[in-house]
Amino acid sequence: MKTIVFELFANLERLAGTAECRVEVEETTGSVGEAIAALASVRPELAASLERCASAAGDRIVRRHDALPADGRIALLPPVAGG
């Protein structure tokens, strides 16, 4: 098993009640999308919101099919106001 650390922002942070969420995943978990699916399964109350979140590693947006970041940290970015 390995640990993925999710950084939560804005409404997602409120919903989870924490700014950081650690999830143990299988060693075979290879993509950002697989890690987010693992988070959704252990925190089902977040699942619907996760669908609408962009993901980021460091200062870059990463996509669901991208490989897991080397440091195991993924930021989840909810929708913005836009207007």
């Binding site: 804005a10 409404n11 609408r52 993901s55 947006i61 970015l77 929708p79 913005v80 106001a81 207007g83």
Partner: peptide, 24 residues
């Protein structure tokens, strides 16, 4: 990724979420 949290006269507050950044 800049979020706006509004505080209202009725004591409530909310993040305004109108626009997904996600593009995949």
């Amino acid at each position: 990724p800049i979020w706006k949290e509004e505080f209202y006269a009725d004591g409530g507050s909310a993040f305004v979420e109108g626009c997904c950044i996600r593009d995949d």
